[in-house]
Design a protein around this nucleic acid. Structure first.
Lengths: 121, 121
DNA sequence: AACAGGAATGAAAATCATTTTCATTTGTGG
DNA sequence: CCACAAATGAAAATGATTTTCATTCCTGTT
């Protein structure tokens, strides 16, 4: 068992929102940090074990990580131009919580996205 | 664009619950069906496009498919055993509509999923 | 300071699901 | 029967993730 490399965590923080292991790695490289991809993966896994970060899956199956507890938001995405608006999801949080309780689920997280055509398109 | 091979759909039905592309393939082989893995993938994709099957992700990132039962619903998925409960999302529908209006979006759809640990895990 | 043993690191190879390529087969209308 | 499009599948390519393993880095101990 290895412990997490602190620079990985700090990079994930700086990334804001979600980032995949590959993205964290590329980001660190671009910033001149000397680190191996393996270490990035190991560190992220360790952070997940310690429940310091959440892990989700993108549509394509790539794992994306995010700081636990970080105020998370949802997205409103335009199908046509790809423009994205960050929106708040108070209603969702409540819904997720209620549904989870109703079915005896614990440690729940959720994903929610809205997509459509923005006013310009 | 290829159309779905009907044997793939029928195998997915017979599998009950969720099955990954690899599982559908193995199942068909075991039953003596002559089919290629590529065709299984293509057929499943096509079924997803036609909204005949749902696709989700297991914890390990593998895509799992299942016949789309009813109309529009959301999922409560166990991260550990993959058990899935279909839940109703009235709150979400409303939230999506309000958020879309607020930002001038039209023709909106949405995705929402909750995941956690079920009572058995 | 030198040393030992364990943890951390990363390059390269291995894995595994999924996608792409491409040559072959099949089916259908003319 | 022929031509042409769609379907098929074997093999290669892709891409994320994991494993292997040799090396480096710590840290506590003589």
């Amino acid at each position: 068992m290895s412990r997490s490399n602190p620079r990985v965590l700090s990079t994930l923080e700086r990334a804001g929102g979600f980032a995949s292991a590959q993205e964290v790695y590329r980001l660190m490289q671009r910033e001149g940090e000397s680190i191996g991809l393996t270490t990035v993966y190991r560190s992220l896994q360790s952070l997940v074990n310690d429940k310091i970060v959440d892990v989700l899956r993108r549509d394509d199956g790539e794992a994306i990580y995010r700081l636990c507890g970080e105020a998370h938001h949802h997205h409103l995405v335009c199908k046509s131009c790809g423009d994205t608006v960050e929106i708040e999801g108070g209603a969702i949080e409540k819904w997720a919580k209620v549904m989870a309780e109703e079915h005896g689920f614990r440690e729940v997280g959720h994903t929610a996205e809205i997509f459509g055509l923005c006013s310009k398109c």
